[in-house]
Amino acid sequence: MHKLIRKLLGKLNIAIALTLAMVMAGGLGGATYVLASSTSNFTQTINAGTLVVDIVDGTSYVTVGSPTMAMSAATFSFACQTKTGSFGTASESIYVSNPDAADNGWAVSLAGTATSSVWASAGTDFDFNDGGGSGCTDTVDAQDTDAVGGQMTVDPSVGTLAIGQCASCVTTNVTKGSSDAFNAVTGPVNTITILTGAAASDDIGDWKLTGVSISQKIPAEQPAASDYNINMVLSIAAS
């Protein structure tokens, strides 16, 4: 009889120890446990999603820390020259995620941080939005306050659009923008549409775009430098 009681008390100790361990571990892990009934309540939080545009690795979908638009190297020239580049590559895809945050459509656009932005270097700058002389010379105008020439053309229509991680999603009703050049004076063209999602596009979906063509007019006799840099803004807007 005593043996039986000892055995039962031993088992009770183990049960108490387990319960205490659960409570302590729960406290450490930040979870809350309810030990009140024989039925289990599993809780799950799904945070509200937001419309996002980003540059990610096209395979792992990990955000690229410092994405850049690489342009082909230019050499000093006495004539105005055009250099091309590609925005969105396999390792730096333009990525749009709509987790039920914009059911009536959205648009992704590219712009300079200001109309007065330039490709800046320690030497002489050149412009991204000056249509003067077919993009080769400076236009003297109040809307384009910088005193340098140069023009950037963006052509999303040649890019390749694909679905992202959402296997059941489709690219139907997601359209690429037309080719256009930034121009602070004529138009003006300060923002270029990259992608547009219609109301009928997937409410929950993600897409990636690669191969958007970029070309930049560099004015004649632009000094050689290795640090030309410009700040651009990639925006997504729910409409």
């Binding site: 183990i14 361990a21 659960m22 571990a25 892990g29 799904i46 945070n47 937001t50 980003d54 995620s97």
Partner: peptide, 25 residues
């Protein structure tokens, strides 16, 4: 038993919290 229970609870407690979509906005 206490050690095993703590380890098991800590591992599972931290892996089932939330589904996240990523990004900010």
């Amino acid at each position: 038993v206490i050690g095993l229970a703590m380890l098991t609870s800590a591992v599972f407690a931290s892996s089932v919290f939330a589904i996240e979509y990523g990004g900010f906005g």
